[in-house]
């Protein structure tokens, strides 16, 4: 069960939307200090699972415990420990980037001077200083993702839960973000990321869980899960559903 060494412990999480079972009893232990990847095909239940684990979506069954604090019994305490980057939600985009991150810090009850110092450093680290005063509504997709990440980092959480953090982020920024996250893990923080990009997960993460159809197909260290093959090969093997590459002969008749 959840020891102090477990950053996030999920037991039997399940969620149904109408007749569709989105998450079908997921249990998972994320060790403290790990860089944990969650991979799965579209509609596998990754976002639903992460939303339930972070207190954004009430589960039908199951519990989630962060560093010994039950997310659904003591939500305010649990949320202090977590930094969350949800996927597919809007931001308060009529604020400037700087205002938005400041807002996220003040909402957490942080001291104004501390917030101001951290906002400056975060924006510089994410290469957003030049656009600090631009309204978020005028940001590009990648910049929006980065400012949302900054809002999740501002209070120095013990656990970071990032849903698709690299989507539409340019390669240079992605490398910068990866550096930030790796240093964060090296000093004892825990990062949980969901992603489609197997290659990235294999290089970046030390643990991985494969989710499909609302269930966990495999979980463990990256080396355990990939069992000698590349993560992508193993993923395709586990999830299945590769269509035969026959047909479409006309495509070669130009």
């Amino acid at each position: 069960m959840s020891t102090p060494l477990t950053a996030l412990s999920i037991r039997g999480l399940a969620k149904r939307f109408g007749t569709k079972i989105a998450v079908d009893g997921i249990s998972l232990d994320v060790p403290a200090g790990s860089f944990f990847g969650i991979v799965g095909p579209n509609g596998a239940g990754k976002t639903t699972t992460l939303s339930m684990a972070t207190g954004l979506l009430r589960p039908d069954f199951g519990t989630a415990v962060v560093h010994g604090v039950d997310v659904w019994a003591q939500p305010l305490e649990a949320k202090k420990l977590m930094g969350i980057l949800p996927d597919g939600v809007r931001l308060f985009d009529r604020l400037s980037g700087e205002q938005l991150v400041t807002y996220a810090g003040l909402l957490r009850g942080m001291d104004r001077a501390v917030v101001a110092a951290r906002v400056g450093e975060l924006l510089a680290a994410l290469d957003l200083s030049q656009d600090a005063g631009t309204l978020v509504v005028d940001y590009s997709a990648g910049m929006t993702k980065k400012i949302a990440l900054a809002s999740a980092l501002i209070h120095a959480p013990k656990v970071l839960v990032l849903d698709e953090p690299f989507e539409s982020v340019d390669p240079v920024s992605a490398a910068n973000i990866r550096d930030i996250l790796e240093r964060y893990v090296a000093t004892g923080g825990t990062v949980i990321v969901s992603s489609h990009v197997m290659d990235l997960v294999q290089r970046m993460c030390d643990h991985v869980a494969v989710i499909a159809g609302g269930r966990i197909l495999a979980a463990g260290t990256v080396d355990q899960v990939r069992a000698g093959a590349s993560l992508e090969e193993r993923f395709v093997q586990l999830v299945g559903g590769r269509s035969q590459t026959e047909g479409l002969e006309w495509l070669r008749t130009f």
């Binding site: 205002q99 003040l106 631009t134």
Partner: peptide, 20 residues
């Protein structure tokens, strides 16, 4: 598009109390 703007203007966030 619109022009890029540097930061430094927190507006009302700097004026009102720094509480939630």
């Amino acid at each position: 598009g619109s022009s890029r703007r540097k930061g430094g203007r927190l507006g009302l966030f700097a004026l009102l109390p720094g509480t939630p």
